[in-house]
């Protein structure tokens, strides 16, 4: 046949071989390059510490004999979602600042890469949690993060509260001590005054009101006058409520 006879097949393989080698090597090198880049990114320190809640959840999920009951798994999933919420809040709040710093050149490219990796991971993580939630109960995936974010908030509130309220005891002790010293100082002052003044005037020491006008700092601590008046005022506030 005409066209096939005219073709020199051996000579034609040369350009084809050229093209194959060229593209083959390009492909190989790009592959190696990409793999190296990924490996390098993976070698960077992760943004977040190990996800303990996720590990707990997955460990429970893989528990054999006895199988872990669903209720515990649900609780573990909620804990995991709560931690995810905290992480995503961190990511969101860090992003803007980091972008600005990167533009100014204040931080290195490594940090940005670590950040992007963390961002991608957390997205995966959220999707995974939603899927798991939907597997437990239909449509739970839509509300699990709402619940989780309230849980994170509630934990925060309770921590802050117990922090503040735990100071009550020491504050009280401090105040008792201080009250005692002030009172004893005050009594001493009174005694001194009594000693200085003639015994005829000793009734003066008994009347606290008289002293009050003299040094109104300490007057509060004396049972008469000050506090009763304050309490009345306090009550008035209450009435307004």
């Amino acid at each position: 046949m005409w066209p096939f006879d005219a073709v020199d097949w051996v000579m034609l393989t040369i350009p084809f071989a050229y093209i194959t080698v060229l593209f083959g090597s390009l492909y190989t090198f790009s592959n190696i390059y990409r793999k190296r880049k990924v490996a390098k990114a993976a070698a960077l320190e992760p943004w977040f510490p190990p996800h303990l809640q996720r590990n707990v959840y997955l460990s429970l999920l893989h528990m054999e004999s006895p199988k872990c009951p669903d209720s515990i798994l649900k609780a573990a999933l909620l804990r995991r979602a709560t931690e995810d919420i905290q992480r995503i809040i961190q990511i969101r709040s860090a992003k803007q600042a980091l972008q600005v710093l990167l533009q100014r050149g204040s931080v290195g490219d490594d940090l940005w890469q670590r950040f992007q990796r963390a961002e991608k991971e957390i997205e995966e993580e959220l999707r995974d949690v939603v899927n798991e939630a939907n597997a437990f109960a239909p449509n739970w995936g839509q509300t699990i993060f709402q619940s989780a974010s309230e849980m994170a908030q509630n934990n925060h509130i309770r921590e802050r509260l117990s922090e503040i309220l735990s100071t009550a005891q020491s504050e009280k002790e401090w105040w008792e001590k201080r009250k005692a010293t002030i009172q004893s100082d005050f009594m001493k002052e009174l005694d001194d005054e009594k000693a200085v003044k003639s015994p005829a005037e000793s009734s003066y020491g008994g009347s606290v009101k008289g002293v009050k006008s003299m040094s109104d700092d300490d007057a509060v601590l004396v049972e008469a006058g000050g506090p009763a008046e304050k309490a009345a005022k306090a009550k008035k506030k209450k009435g307004k409520h």
Partner: peptide, 9 residues
């Protein structure tokens, strides 16, 4: 955090 398909038992 570990990659998505790995976890610590």
């Amino acid at each position: 955090m570990e990659s998505p398909d790995v976890f610590t038992l």
